[in-house]
Design a binder for these strands. Structure first.
Lengths: 195, 195
DNA sequence: GTCTATAATAAGATAGAC
DNA sequence: GTCTATCTTATTATAGAC
């Protein structure tokens, strides 16, 4: 943590603190000390505490969405798009564990305008999952069901991997993402040869 | 909110505030004003702020577990036990929406001993799901898979219903619990007549 | 770009009267 | 069981020097 880019240092340190202690329990002083500067110096880089939180939440959402778009690019088949979306979402929530946990637990720390910005980005992201599920049901590859409820169910399950995932655990990120993808695909697909 | 039982009033008011604003963002003063008393009077009923949080988290875990045990009582068949466990867990997370959201987002507000108490209760509860899944796999009713990962996946999905559930929404609690139960059962069952 | 010093406020908690 | 008054400390944020 040299002084190469202090703003990035402050951000990285804040991600660490907000993840461990929570946003409200972390003070500007905590962030300053962990960054190796005085608390007043924080205000040269960020206009206030909320600004740091907003920066974290915004870049996380941008990266999450960019990640999804990149993975989906060129894939046409609906089932394959669903597999890819679930896999990419799950993997991201293990790769960026700290930031996504902050994103999910600290949105209340934002004032109205910033809050609306993040919620809007999130809604647009969620909508992409809903479109795929809806199309799958229309095409008859996915079983008839309430596509909104299905999207909430799948997204929240794959988001929550960030809560229990342990980088030192038995299974690799890739293995877990694969189990999650198979699990959800099996649950939404039409059953072919059944009773 | 009469003065029938001020301790219960304080608790109910705190559930409301912690749910809306978060534990750290809610002050003793906020709780006092919403309860209709002065902030010093809070300390007659609770020894400190954390004590209120702990009371909420503890009773929620006790009720959650009691609810599961009550529903499972007398059911022997593994698939039926799994259905019941998922259904009861999901329903509880809609019935007690505010408290479970606090439980999931504010455990960090507890000091070490209290934290350990809640985590232990939670682990014991989770273990009951793991046992059912493990037995189902051993019996050949559920598909071969990592039973721990499956338990995390299912529990976190059904827990997260509390985040998006809207009491004024299109579907009833019962309908949602049914969709969730069917979804997860389909995902873990062995496929019988497949390719 | 970072420092020291300080303002302004709000927090959790206690003492003691009624 | 609830009140008023107060202690102590921590917080976010700003002013101005270097």
């Amino acid at each position: 943590m040299a002084k190469a880019n202090m703003k990035e240092t402050i951000k990285a340190v804040s991600i660490d603190l907000f993840y461990k202690k929570g946003y409200f329990a972390s003070s500007i002083n905590d962030i300053a000390r962990a960054s190796g500067i005085q608390k007043s110096s924080i205000y040269y880089h960020y206009s206030n505490k909320e600004d740091i939180l907003f920066d974290i939440l915004k870049t996380t959402m941008i990266d999450l969405d960019a990640n999804l778009e990149k993975q989906l690019k060129g894939i046409e088949d609906t089932e394959e798009r669903m597999r890819t979306a679930i896999h990419s979402h799950t993997l991201f929530h293990m790769e960026r564990q700290k930031e996504v946990i902050i994103s999910d637990s600290e949105i209340r720390g934002l004032t109205v305008d910033n809050y609306k910005t993040i919620i809007k980005m999130r809604d647009e992201y969620d909508h992409k999952f809903q479109s795929i599920i809806k199309r799958g049901i229309d095409e008859g590859v996915f079983a008839e069901n309430d596509y909104k409820i299905l999207s909430y169910a799948i997204i929240t399950m794959c988001t929550a991997v960030s809560i229990w995932f342990n980088p030192q655990g038995r299974l690799s990120k890739e293995e877990i993402a694969q189990i999650y993808t198979d699990f959800n695909l099996k649950a939404i697909k039409v059953e072919n040869f059944q009773e």
